[in-house]
């Protein structure tokens, strides 16, 4: 992905520059019911740096594949809707530079 001056890139393009070994089992799960019923701000959609949380109809769509394992969603979710752990077996993002 070439970073041209002034051209903004999409988050998926940025994530694509990383090395991944994505597990077939998710390491994070989200209780969508809580998102739909309890949460109006849905702060995770703006603060998850990997864009794993997206708005859908009245709720949330979560995909763990691009997760950078930062832990933000676990901490900012006001409704404890996020069940969070690190991936197993060294899977997930593989930083080369860090």
């Amino acid at each position: 992905m070439s970073v041209q001056a002034l051209k903004k890139i999409k988050i998926t393009e940025a994530l694509n520059t990383n090395i991944w070994d994505v597990d077939s089992r998710p390491h994070i799960t989200v209780d969508y019911e809580k998102c739909r019923k309890l949460c109006d701000k849905k702060i995770c959609t703006l603060l998850c740096p990997a864009g794993c949380y997206t708005l859908s109809d009245d709720g949330i769509l979560f995909s763990y594949e691009g997760c950078l394992e930062c832990g933000t969603c676990r901490i900012v979710c006001p409704h404890e809707a996020v069940k969070w752990d690190y991936p197993l077996s060294g899977r997930g993002v593989q930083y080369r530079f860090g």
Binding site: M1, S2, V3, Q4, A5, L6, K7, K8, I9, E13, A14, L15, T17, N18, P49, A50, L68, C70, G71, T72, I75, V93, Y95, R96, F97, G98
Partner: peptide, 21 residues
């Protein structure tokens, strides 16, 4: 992508994007 960074980083290639607390 704003000045002056866009000029300073011109021709750059993104090689990694990460996040951490």
């Amino acid at each position: 992508t704003s000045q002056p960074f866009s000029d300073i980083l011109k021709d750059g290639v993104l090689v990694e994007y990460g996040a951490h607390l």
